[in-house]
């Protein structure tokens, strides 16, 4: 997986960048498949995996058509929120009779742990130009399942990248982070295992963590410090 100065979200705006789209699929397709299936499960919609795949395909077609004009503006909303709304709208589009019972459908599909009340959502074909200011007030905010799934998808992509980069130049640095940062083992114990001092374990952990946080934010618009 290549990492360039351009972020993935900038690269997929170029529809000719096939490699970027390959990475985009690798990261977001599992998230979308699992989220859509999770949302429709137990909601008595009677969907099968074919329906779930169909909705995810709809989402990717929309992304392909809208991302070239998409400008990330953190002041107005995050990418994960925008993608969440496209996903929920794609689900609603497939619910029979949703036009007459839009709000009901939205309530049914909202996660049980969603804190924000449902509000009027933009028309599906407006999504490419969706006004992200609408999201800033809390309406349409992703539910916890989405937030967790999104973070998981990003970290599943980022951690192997960072591991490969760091371990290639300084295996101890990665090992310090893995054992101390990820496995939460005492610095002194890790230091003894790696034959380095505890201060260096702290330094290594802090630096790799910073690298991970920066990569998540710059490439995938994911702020790892957010709850």
């Amino acid at each position: 997986m290549s990492v360039t100065n351009e972020t993935l979200l900038e690269r997929v705006r170029n529809t000719a960048d096939h490699a970027a789209w390959g990475e985009f699929f690798a990261i977001y397709e599992p998230l979308l498949l699992n989220y859509v299936r999770g949302r429709v499960r137990d909601r008595s919609l009677g969907w099968n995996d074919h329906d779930v795949q169909d909705v995810v395909q709809e989402i990717f077609i929309k992304l392909y058509r809208t991302l070239p004009d998409f400008h990330l503006d953190h002041g107005r909303g995050r990418f994960r929120t925008w993608l969440y709304r496209i996903t929920v709208n794609a689900i609603l589009d497939r619910v029979p009779g949703r036009k007459s019972a839009d709000k009901v459908a939205a309530d049914n599909l909202a996660s049980d742990n969603a804190a924000a009340p449902q509000r009027r959502r933009p028309k599906v074909h407006d999504e490419g130009q969706v006004d992200l200011r609408n999201l800033a007030g809390g309406a349409g905010e992703p539910d916890l399942d989405w937030a967790n799934g999104y973070r998981q998808a990003v970290l599943d992509a980022v951690l192997p990248q960072i591991q490969a980069e760091v371990a290639a130049t300084n295996p101890n640095k990665w090992e310090s982070f893995a054992r101390h940062g990820l496995q939460n083992r005492p610095a002194a114990e890790v230091a003894a295992e790696l034959g380095i001092n505890a201060n260096l374990v702290y330094q290594n952990t802090a630096r790799v963590l910073e690298l991970v946080r920066r990569r998540c934010l710059e490439c995938y618009d994911e702020e790892l410090s957010e709850a």
Binding site: H18, W21, G22, F24, F25, A26, E29, P30, L33, N34, R37, D49, V52, Q53, N148, R151, Q152, L155, D156, L159, G181, L182, N184, L209, V212, R213, L224, S225, E226, A227
Partner: peptide
């Protein structure tokens, strides 16, 4: 917070498969 998210993500990545397996994206060109 970041460390907590990371640890959760790593534990999920290594968790045994759920009873209903996740829908796997197929290998295909973009």
């Amino acid at each position: 917070t970041a460390l907590t998210h990371l640890r959760v993500a790593v534990s999920r990545s290594h968790a045994p498969a759920a009873p209903t397996p996740a829908l796997a994206p197929s290998l295909r060109p973009s």
